[in-house]
Amino acid sequence: MSVSVRIPPVLRAHVGGVKVVQMSGATLGEVLSALVVAHADLREQIFESDGALRRWVNVYVDGADARHLAGLETPTPAGIEVVILPAMAGGSR
């Protein structure tokens, strides 16, 4: 089951500069685990040491915040899009 994972610009250096990677997994947790296995540098950026999502990283499954769905247990049927989106700096300077 292939899921598109959209990587935010600030993390793209860790995945070879691409915007979207294809991952497999029946749940968001499985998809993100596969992602950090494939791109080990991302683990520390996305996950706390206890395996929870870092609080400043928001993850959207099919356009909705996974924290308001079932978190890492949120199902990820094939073809769905996962968006990883950390807080973005502003534009004053």
Binding site: Q45, W56, V57, P86, A89, G90, G91, R93
Partner: peptide, 10 residues
């Protein structure tokens, strides 16, 4: 807030 390296400015 994210750590500074996660949200660099322009």
């Amino acid at each position: 807030p994210p750590p500074p390296e996660m949200a660099p400015g322009c």
